[in-house]
Write a protein that binds this DNA or RNA. Structure first.
Length: 474
RNA sequence: GGCGCCGUACCCAAGUGGCUAAGGGGAAGGUCUGCAAAACCUUUAUUCGUGGGUUCGAUUCCCACCGGCGCCUCCA
């Protein structure tokens, strides 16, 4: 099995991946707070993790991928007031939208777990941290005391002293340390609340991810993932509370994976600033496969600048791959019946694998895809090659490789969306092409061109070549 | 102010202590073609922000500077 290298935020180095348990990989990714439509930044994380999962499966691992929904917090409560519905309804509404968006992008869904369905595990964990002296209770709130955890800051690379130097945290007199964070918040009147040893309340933000990942994946699970903006304080706090918790052996998670932000006009796309492109809107303008391709053109840790120009480029690039794929398929339908040459594409498959194994370098892997595209086109384009008996097998071999790279691994569909591939249409187009050929033979080019133009207006492209005329949806 | 990341052709973007610095988009020329489209071939970085240093040799390592970004507060 080829070696997978991945960058671990905790050590800030590239490391060889070895799972906790042979053949199995456990992954936890911080999900979102469902209180607004998801934007492109969220979808980047979704797509990155989908690729990670797919590639691990290609390497032969069984993947257990868990992701949470923070279905109760301040923002959800506020949203519920605004929309005049319950917090449960808010969470359900936006969770459902999120899942729909993810599925539209061809993502295989992780196992979703909700905070409100796991209160027992969360309360149990907080209670133990209080008993062991890592946390203290003030007026029904529970805070984690960062000074009790000497390694606090090891993920984000900063010390408590450094944080205090540039502290912008509002001082809460009741906290022993400005950096102490809430594990449990006492409920205000009218807010949704759960019973606990400290009175009615709800969990703080950070504790849920610790409790849920430990509950569903166990201690020292393999990969903890999230956006880079979660490194501090969220993931730092998760480490502190989890490693202080006796049921968690060190380390809490073995590899920390963080994807980069999506930016819009030089600024991070973020709900709080309102600089956002909702994925819903984008889906109406661009096919999901194009959006996915766009997200994969950059390494996952590099910040990605969103722009419609980049999306148009992605569209053109993807079209090139699809055209080659369709040409190849058409060629095989004509000369078919042969077995695929299983080794012809091997160098490119190796190139692709190497790129994916080196920290999921999709940008580099795409180079191999285009090498295969060139190989296919060259064979179909060169008359001497196209007529050789071995060529159909070679083309079939390249098509298989292309399909594996694009669809199986990268999850980018090579077939066209508007599945207009009805049999009637096929037959009709066959007739049209035959009639038009007759016109061209009689040199009635104005009529032949008019047919081509009219079809183009309908989204059907005719392409004439010495081997005959082909059509495709564009 | 603190911690960290980045600066590669017209644009996007991968990458490496020495081998032709991937790939995509765009542009120009050529081939094929009735024309168009698609495709193929060629051209678009003697050079990798600037200035030093280490080295036989640096775009790649170190330092400084300039420019951009992320986090330090809710964030994917």
């Amino acid at each position: 099995m080829a070696e997978l290298i991945l960058y671990n935020t905790l050590t800030r180095t590239e490391e060889r991946f070895t799972p906790r348990e042979a053949g199995k990989v456990s992954i936890y990714a911080c999900g979102l707070t469902p209180q607004a439509p998801a934007h492109v930044g969220h979808m980047r994380g979704v797509v990155v993790m989908d690729i990670v999962q797919r590639w691990l499966e290609q390497l032969g691992y069984t993947v257990n991928f868990v992701q949470n929904f923070t279905d109760i917090d301040d923002k959800i409560i506020r949203r519920a007031h605004e929309e005049g519905i319950t917090t449960t309804e808010v969470a359900e509404k936006y969770s459902k939208m999120y899942v729909e968006d993810a599925e539209a992008l061809g993502v295989r869904l992780p196992r979703f777990v909700k905070v409100t369905e796991n209160m027992d595990a969360i309360i149990e964990m907080v209670q133990r941290l209080v008993e062991d002296g890592y946390a203290y209770v003030v007026d029904g709130d529970v805070y984690f005391e960062v000074n009790k955890f000497p390694e606090y800051g090891k993920l984000s690379g900063r010390s408590v002293e450094e944080m205090q130097a540039g502290a912008r945290i509002e001082v809460d007199e009741r906290k022993r340390n400005p950096e102490d964070f809430a594990l449990w918040k006492a409920a205000k009147p009218g807010e949704p609340a759960w019973d606990s040893p400290w009175g009615k309340g709800r969990p703080g933000w950070h504790i849920e991810c610790s409790a849920l990942s430990l509950k569903y994946l166990g201690a020292a699970f393999d990969i903890h993932a999230g956006g880079m903006d979660l490194i501090f304080p969220h993931h730092e706090n998760e480490i502190a509370q989890s490693e202080a918790y006796p049921h968690c052996e060190q380390p809490f998670a073995r590899y920390w994976l963080h994807w980069g932000p999506v930016r819009l006009r030089q600024e991070k796309m973020s709900k709080s600033t309102g600089v956002v492109v909702p994925i819903r809107e984008l889906r109406q303008q661009y096919e999901p496969a194009v959006i996915r391709y766009f997200l994969l053109t950059v390494h996952y840790r590099t910040p990605l600048e969103f722009s419609y120009e980049r999306l148009d480029e992605a569209k053109s690039a993807l079209e090139r791959v699809r055209t080659a794929y369709q040409r190849g398929q058409a060629f095989l339908r004509e000369h078919g019946g042969t077995n695929a040459d299983s080794v012809i594409a091997e160098p490119y498959v190796q190139q692709f694998r190497a790129a994916m194994n080196y920290d999921f370098n999709t940008a580099q892997a795409l180079a191999a895809v285009f090498e295969v595209v060139r190989e296919i086109n060259t064979r179909l384009n060169t008359p001497e090659l196209a007529t050789q008996a071995t060529t159909p097998a070679e083309v079939a071999g390249f098509l298989n490789a292309l399909q594996w790279m694009m669809e199986t691994v990268l999850g980018v569909s090579l077939s066209l969306p508007a599945a207009a591939q009805s049999e009637t249409l096929e037959q009709l187009m066959e007739r049209v092409i035959t009639w038009r050929k007759e016109l061209r033979t009689r040199k009635l080019y104005d009529l032949a061109d008019r047919i081509r133009d009219d079809l183009k207006a309908m989204g059907i492209l005719l392409e004439d070549s010495p081997q005959g005329t082909t059509w495709r949806m564009g």
